[in-house]
Amino acid sequence: MQLQAVSIGSAVPQNNFNATIQSLFVSSLNLRLDNYDKLITILVSDHYDLPQGIRVNQTLPIQPLNIGGAAVSRGGIIRFESSPLAIDLRGAKIWGGKLPRLNGPTEQAWSIIWQTLNAGQIQSKSDLIAEELFQPDHAPHLTRNLSMPVRGLIAAAERFDPHACTDAAKKMIGLGPGVTPTGDDILIGFMAGLYCMLGCKTDRLNFIEEFGKGLFCLSKKTNEISRTYIQHAIKGEFSSSMVGLIEAIRAGDEGRLICATKSTMQIGHSSGMDSITGFLVALAAWNSTSFYTKYKD
């Protein structure tokens, strides 16, 4: 059975490659490219694009695939060992994953996203409630462990200190449940927040580059799948949901913003919510909001 890919991320090789199946989930699978320290992800979704993703929007009747099994791409078609399944990459649109820039004030948008996020986290009984990061006394163990490092990220970004920021990230990397742990998702969102406020400011660019180097080293302390997302984030490449959220902020339409926030929050079990948390943390650092000020006091 041959399926047509709807989109492919810019990190997916356009030429021939050999790979092995690294992991298999209900609605996605990861391929490890031979000769590269790099994963690409085949995922079923009607809208969600990733820099390393190959998106199909049909149910995948995957024949007996096994972790470690071979996959090869020749002439733009991926075929799998012991399976009639093939995925045609030709003609699929390319997802670059680059973020739009935020130039204007974001305080109002920040508050709307923050409220939507916290309400969603409470309702879904998420492991992490963003507000508790700043009021951790009665929070769960995981939140208490993340609280100081998250505050550390903000303080370090405010004074453009990439080394302090890396020290804070060190306490977060790989921390939490799931394949992309909570700490990692926060860091990915944090990078997105930094990139979208980069503008033409040299101090910000230098900070991102230096912190990116530190985070790249730290990424070896988390698992291969999560590391892939982090390394794309370091390069400024993100998912379509994060891009959609920033576009909604730029549009200045409250309804669209709430929709985009909720859509991003639905990614994974809690990954979307954790990424938004990190994103808002970065915005709070570089676009200081009165809402956040109360926690600093």
């Binding site: 298999l24 149910t59 009747p61 695939l65």
Partner: peptide, 23 residues
């Protein structure tokens, strides 16, 4: 994974109403 039957065929569950309708 539990949706992988004895035949080894894994059916990815629909992620949207539209995908459900396709199946």
């Amino acid at each position: 994974p539990t949706n992988m039957g004895d035949s080894g065929v894994q059916n990815m569950p629909p992620r949207s109403i539209e995908m459900g309708l396709e199946t």
